[in-house]
Design a protein around this nucleic acid. Structure first.
Lengths: 235, 235
DNA sequence: GTTTGTGAAGTTATTCACAGCG
DNA sequence: CGCTGTGAATAACTTCACAAAC
């Protein structure tokens, strides 16, 4: 009955699950009960076979002839992504980006619980952001002891990022998500993801530069699309 | 002399160029004159052969025995990414995220020029953000006619995103970068990139969930790392 | 008739391994 | 020596194509 034969899910597929997740959320919200791989593929701008292959790694949840039950499939993806688990998240650096993240739906729903907001700026400490009081970074170790965070998000200026990372690692954090424009150095056992807000801008720049450039050997304009698809690089 | 035989650069390599770019920026800033593929690979957390292969698509810029000239290589990558071209960027939605983007170094240096900030909130319109005055969205068409933007960035709430996208497409914009949590529908000729700030959080969640899960067939903990590496999906 | 799930084929990307240059 | 650049080998991913299920 249940697909107990859990194969390793290819990284490329894992990277697409959040995209399907978002589309399914929209469909469920719109009251759509079922969806075919063809329809999912159109919205995700990928090949329908790819959708079916990706979903088949989670199990056989479709119904031949009609498609997938949107609500059920969403639940399965959430489970696979671990979004039904409680992940306490702390955010360090409550500037514009930190506030955007703290208020972001994706950061405050489905598993992710904002367990702490930290900054060093006197005017910020004590103020309320996204319904929580901002604590001083000096309190990090103490508060992290009370409610150990699973994920640390760094949204500080570049200069502070490495220090903050070191403190979090020292406090025993297992995973870091770094938005600061600095390549961090952490021990290999720490799950590290670096995010650069301008990466997509640079990729757009590349494709704009290479669209039908006269004298260039590149073919006709590619039409890329992704939802922040990020393949992982196992060490 | 110059590598005129420009082959098509694999998408996977293009996605890594911004990562090398950032590392080289840091090295140049630190005064490091040369770097080996091994050193670059360590910082990027990728295989050294991969670095050499990636760089070889741009040309033969290394010196056997010593490595690559950091400044020169940086210039070559910038050129390949089109960062030496002027790309006027407009940002719509000047909330926390919009402000973070407008102030972001990546958005205001190397080719990207903030050509306009738009919102509809009366308190924001007329105020200064990142050294520019926020205009009302109603002025978009007029101002876009004066200084046609190459890239439109959408940082509005989900509900407004599709309307804003439609207006930008109508005004003739060629590429869109969408940060709103909504899958946009645009004509196929528009270069569209969707970014979800919580994607990386979800990928972290997946890997945390699958680390040495008892009874699971997954191998020992993978140690992913990326700098927002985003492969593209050609239509 | 429709749509899934999946082997097989085809494509792209990664890694190896080493010749060749400084 | 050290390190690049690259063919050849390997691995990962994508797409095709179709039998089976509804």
């Amino acid at each position: 009955m249940s697909a107990e034969h859990r194969r390793r899910i290819p990284e490329a597929s894992v990277a697409r699950l959040p995209l399907y997740q978002r589309i399914l959320l929209e469909l469920v919200h719109a009251g759509t009960a079922t969806v075919s791989s063809e329809q999912l593929a159109e919205r995700a701008r990928v090949n329908a076979s790819k959708v079916r292959k990706d979903l088949s790694f989670l199990g056989s949840f479709g119904t031949r002839g009609s498609g997938y039950d949107t609500g059920f499939l969403l639940g399965q993806i959430d489970q696979e992504l671990g979004l039904d688990t409680d992940w306490p998240v702390v955010i360090v650096g409550i500037g514009n980006l930190g506030r955007a993240l703290a208020n972001s739906q994706g950061f405050t729903s489905r598993g992710f619980r904002v367990a702490g907001l930290f900054d060093v700026h006197p005017e910020l400490v004590g103020s309320a952001v996204a319904g929580r009081t901002v604590a001083h970074l000096d309190e990090f170790e103490r508060l992290a002891g009370e409610d150990p965070p699973a994920i640390g998000v760094i949204a500080t200026p570049a200069g502070a990022a490495q220090d903050v990372a070191d403190r979090m690692v020292e406090a025993g954090i297992g995973s870091l998500l770094n938005f600061a424009p600095r390549v961090l150095h952490v021990p290999p056992h720490v799950l590290l993801r670096q995010v650069d807000l301008s990466i997509e801008l640079q990729v757009i720049s590349f494709y704009l530069s290479h669209r039908d450039h006269p004298g260039s050997a590149t073919a006709s304009s590619p039409l890329p699309h992704s939802l922040g698809l990020s393949p992982v690089e196992p060490a």
